[in-house]
């Protein structure tokens, strides 16, 4: 993969947008984490802090008509696909103004109008569903491509294998995008698979597979673009494995006994997708430090407004309990 920004196909504007989206995701999740600690968010949440480049890079290759399926760790996917953060935040607080009217929560944020077919509480469930959405695209000649996000852990579910095979034999316009953040809830990928790269599994299904640096947003965007182009031109599915790292614990309570603090520090200090990309943009005079601070300021305001919106929004009324069970 090419790492020189001058050779990228992206305009300065597009690259600044990628940086901004990554920063928005991180700030959103830092706010979520704080609200959770304050007891304002019920249940649990799975943060993707440290993994922002996979969501943003992958979605940069998609059009508004293209679709994604997401995972339990889906805030980043949602934002990168264009979700509004006010109804996202409201959903996390269980409010009536949320994407799911307070009924779904963090693990079930969806917005079909922007092509987000939903986060999912069931590991690997998004792969067959995404395959089906790609089938609809093919049958109705819609031209859209579907990108399925999933984790390294999900690659050990039968659903992963069955979906890849089906998508391959039917030549469907789908991109299987694995965010390999090195662990499931605790299971290290090194112990849970006996191959070097999850992308090697593509061979078994007769489709191309690549492993890329998931913390380099440009590399992610370019690799995804190639896969999306293949899918759109009728050449079928691709498996992309993007290597990354989740900085936080798996969910609300995680003593992180399955990994070392040194390893965490190394990923944080030397491979942070946001500060790395920011430095590159500054080095190549695409961005100034001042602009960066301004972007952060705008984001802070946006987050602040989203939190206020969510906090001031009404709870869903009890009469909605049995609404939307059937059409």
């Amino acid at each position: 993969m090419v790492n020189n920004l001058e050779e990228t196909i992206y305009s300065n504007q597009q690259m600044k947008k990628m940086l901004t989206d990554m920063m928005l995701i991180r700030s959103f999740e830092e706010a979520v984490e704080k609200l959770f600690q304050e007891g304002k968010i019920p249940g649990t949440m799975h943060l993707c802090i440290g993994q922002e480049a996979t969501a943003v890079g992958a979605c940069a290759a998609l059009t508004d008509e293209d679709k994604i399926t997401s995972t339990h760790r889906g805030h980043g996917h949602s934002i990168a696909k264009g979700a509004e953060i006010k109804p996202m935040m409201a959903e996390l607080l269980g409010k009536a103004t949320g994407y799911g009217k307070g009924k779904g929560g963090s693990m079930h944020i969806a917005d079909l109008t922007i092509g987000n077919l939903g986060a999912n509480g069931i590991v690997a469930a998004g792969l067959p569903i995404g395959t089906g959405a790609a089938l609809a695209s093919q049958m109705k000649k819609k031209g859209y491509v579907v990108l399925c996000f999933f984790g390294d852990g999900a690659a050990n579910e039968g659903a992963f294998h069955e979906a890849l095979n089906l998508a391959s034999i039917w030549n469907l316009p789908v991109v299987f995008f694995c965010e390999n953040n090195q662990y499931g809830m605790s299971g290290p990928v090194k112990e849970m698979v006996n191959i070097e790269h999850i992308s090697d599994r593509a061979k078994s299904y007769g489709i191309p597979g690549f492993t890329i640096n998931g913390n380099d947003v440009i590399e992610v965007a370019k690799a995804t673009q190639e896969a999306v182009d293949r899918a759109r031109s009728g050449e079928g599915p691709t498996l992309i494995e993007a290597e990354t790292y989740r900085w936080r614990g798996h969910s609300r309570s995680d003593a992180r006994k399955y990994r070392t603090r040194e390893e965490e520090k190394d990923w944080r200090n030397t491979k942070d997708p946001i500060s790395k990309f920011k430095e590159r943009l500054i080095e190549e005079s695409i961005l100034t430090e001042k602009e960066f601070l301004e972007i952060q300021k705008t984001i802070d305001t946006e987050i602040h407004e989203a939190v206020s919106f969510a906090e001031e929004s009404p709870e869903p009324s009890l009469d909605t309990l049995e609404v939307d069970i059937y059409v």
Binding site: G94, K103, E315, P316, L318, L321
Partner: peptide, 16 residues
């Protein structure tokens, strides 16, 4: 229980 999927919002969840 009410014949509904379990909702996320705590008040709705209790009511279910």
């Amino acid at each position: 229980g009410i014949a509904t999927p379990i909702p996320y919002n705590p008040s709705l969840e209790k009511a279910a």
